[in-house]
Write a protein that binds this DNA or RNA. Structure first.
Lengths: 208, 208
DNA sequence: TATTTAATGGAACCTATGTTTCGTTAAGAT
DNA sequence: ATCTTAACGAAACATAGGTTCCATTAAATA
């Protein structure tokens, strides 16, 4: 096979190629909603997208390649951090955006699929890591702003605060598989904020 | 096919049947370490276990069935909660036991596999949920003891505290796929404890 | 130790998944 | 408008993954 996903689609990305990609990613999401990552097949995706399966294999190579590309696509649509004027509002905005994403049929299924894929596929793992590290970095800004406003102690690690907001929600989604509720999101904010105010997110070697 | 994993192995569980199960679960773990859940095949497992593949299909039915059984087996080996005499020591003991498990080649691979399987298989999802809810319930005791000793506020939700200890570690393992370090475990304890002392884990309707 | 039959396992079998071939279509360039 | 060839897709093909059949082995019981 000619290199999947490398050569194909780069020289003439316009028109047909773009339409094929959109249709395939769309179909992939639909299939993930209905069958999960384990039940995802290249064949079904191709059929659903109205595209030759040869094309799907050529450009994406494998199921993991499909979900990795999907994740990359989502990364590009990432929304900027909120600025509500106060750290509590900002963190709530962050928690609720995660909450909504996880409970959205299409997005939630997609996240779970990529998480599953990433456990045994390096390509998917990288797409996943890239997505979250970018998102964390983006939202860490709200913490820096809060520190400047004097709402949180000097040296508070923004990235860690943002991780702490999301962690309990993903833990419920993927580990204990309990419903990810609005209350869970609110509690996560309250607890993270309590710890942050107590200085538990201050890193040893960062005093400016 | 006769009902997989229902009828088989229950009437004559001694001798050969037990040896087959042990060999198959052992082989499953080995395969998970080497190839991950996606690369796990019934065929390979059977060959590695030195067992007919018919047997594997008959008793476990699918890859998800294998990892679900593996998880059930681990649940039975679950160790009781620590009692170091202080809540900080107890929570550290909990965090370190999670840390060790996730960084252990065999256990870590197994957890990741079950998590992956659970995203699209209900049997695996149930085994996973059962394992963690049991573990959480078990360790929640250390929080109740701490409340009785006056170390934490009345009404502190033990299950939630234990979840909060683990969550950041699993989040790193499975979502951002960053290394799960000793420092991460220690930070998790410090932050959870700070929030707990501030009363952020007190549930509204539980004052005794 | 003999009997019954649960449980196993080799081998043949089948289907879905993945690959290769090659003719057709249309993007991009002139 | 014409040309070049990237990209697509139908169909034939290969094979790994999963299933069925039935003879063999050995638990459990007396």
């Amino acid at each position: 096979m000619d290199q999947p996903s490398r050569s194909a689609g780069t020289v003439r990305p316009g028109g047909r190629t773009a339409r094929v990609r959109a249709a395939v990613l769309e179909a992939t999401q639909d299939e993930l909603v209905e069958h999960g990552f384990h039940g995802l097949t290249m064949d079904q995706v191709a059929a659903r997208a109205g595209v030759g399966k040869t094309t799907v294999y050529r450009r994406w190579g494998s199921r993991a390649g499909l979900v990795a590309d999907l994740m990359t696509e989502l990364a590009n649509q990432s929304t900027p951090y909120a600025d509500t004027g106060g750290i509590e509002g900002d963190l709530r905005a962050n928690a609720f955006s995660v909450l909504e994403a996880l409970n959205d049929g299409r997005l939630g299924s997609t996240f779970q699929a990529v998480i599953a894929a990433a456990t045994s596929d390096e390509q998917a793992a990288q797409a996943l890591r890239a997505f979250y590290l970018r998102r964390i970095e983006e939202w860490a800004n709200v913490v820096d702003l809060a520190v400047k406003r004097g709402e949180l102690p000097e040296g508070t690690d923004g990235g860690e605060v943002i991780r702490a907001i999301s962690a309990p929600l993903y833990y419920r989604l993927v580990v204990t598989r309990e419903p990810v509720t609005r209350e869970a999101a609110e509690r996560s904010v309250a607890r993270t904020l309590a710890a942050a105010r107590a200085g538990a997110f201050v890193v040893p070697d960062s005093a400016g």
